[in-house]
Every structure is written in C-alpha cells, then in structure tokens.
Deep mutational scan, measured.
Amino acid sequence: MQIFVKGLTGKTTTLEVEPSDTIENVKAKIQDKTGLPPDQQRLIFAGKQLEDGRTLSDYNIQKESTLHIVWR
C-alpha cells in the first residue's frame, strides 16, 4: 500500500509499505529516500508519536494515510 510522509518543509515523500511493517522498517525506507537516519526521525500520526516496535496496523494506518515527520 502507499502512504505519504510529510515533513516540516511541506515536502511529501511517498512510500510503498505493508500494514505489517514495523515503524522501524518504515524509518529505514524513509532513510533510503531522504538520507535522514532513523535515529533522527520522529513519526507522528493522529497526534501520536509512533514507536519503533509497533506496526502500521497497530496504529490503524491505512493506504494513503499521511504521517508527519519531525527531525530530532
């Protein structure tokens, strides 16, 4: 499925993911596209910070959802 990651600059990155992907895995995909290391990424969805060990489905993140990224 496709999801979007929007940064503070307003730039949006598209990712191809599975609902079973962990947040850690998603951060690795973001690094592949942007070069930003996972330890500098904070992902937010529906006002919650996403924890590395959880999956996208744990947070009810579905296709075409938009996550927000904040740099540490």
Rank of each mutant, 00 (worst) to 15 (best):
G47H: 05
T66H: 15
T22K: 08
K11M: 13
I69Y: 05
Y59R: 00
E64D: 14
T66S: 05
D39P: 07
D32G: 10
R72S: 14
I69C: 05
V26W: 00
T14F: 06
N25L: 12
S57M: 10
Q40Y: 11
L67Y: 01
R42H: 13
W71R: 12
T55F: 05
L8V: 11
P38V: 15
D52E: 10
N60C: 05
D39E: 14
V26D: 00
R54T: 06
T22W: 04
K63E: 12
T12N: 07
E64C: 09
K33R: 09
Q31L: 08
L50N: 00
Q31A: 14
V5P: 01
D58Q: 06
D52S: 07
Q2P: 08
S57F: 07
Q31S: 12
P37C: 07
S20H: 12
P38Q: 11
G7P: 06
K63R: 11
T55I: 06
T66F: 07
D39W: 13
R72Q: 14
S65H: 06
D52I: 05
K29F: 05
M1K: 02
V5L: 11
T55E: 03
Q40D: 07
E18C: 09
L67K: 00
Q41I: 15
S57N: 11
L50S: 01
E16D: 12
F45K: 02
I23Q: 01
G7I: 10
L43F: 03
L67A: 01
T66K: 04
I23K: 00
N60W: 04
K48L: 11
G53P: 06
Q49V: 15
T22Q: 04
H68T: 12
T55W: 03
K29G: 02
E24P: 03
L15F: 06
T13K: 05
Q62L: 10
L43V: 05
N60T: 04
E51C: 07
I44P: 00
E51I: 08
Q31K: 11
V5R: 01
I61T: 01
W71L: 15
E64T: 05
I30L: 10
Q62V: 13
L50C: 03
G7Q: 09
P37L: 09
S57R: 12
T14P: 08
E51S: 07
F4H: 10
Y59D: 01
G47N: 06
L67S: 01
K48H: 12
K27Y: 03
L67Q: 00
L50F: 02
V26G: 00
N60P: 03
R42V: 15
L15W: 03
L15V: 08
E64N: 14
D21P: 00
P38T: 14
V70F: 12
N25R: 15
G7T: 13
R42W: 10
M1Y: 12
N25P: 00
H68Q: 11
